[in-house]
Amino acid sequence: MAGLAVPTWDPETAALIGAILLEAIVLYVGYGGLERLLGPYLTTLLLGGESDAQ
């Protein structure tokens, strides 16, 4: 944890942390899209086809 240590401006480090933030957002959106696309199929697979009963 960082506490009250005051960071100085460093463009290279800011870009690095920005890249991690960007990757996190892209992964959130990307996995969200995959979940919507494949979610129903995976649910059926995990529940052993019981969803067909509905």
Binding site: M1, P7, I17, E23, A24, L27
Partner: peptide
């Protein structure tokens, strides 16, 4: 975020470690 920035300034953040870890952990 603040802690990562402070460690990153000293070369302590390796994207080769963080990126694949994040890829798995996001799921």
């Amino acid at each position: 975020g603040l802690g990562s920035y402070l460690y990153g300034q000293g070369g302590g953040v390796d994207l080769g470690i963080v990126a694949p870890l994040l890829f798995g952990s996001a799921l």
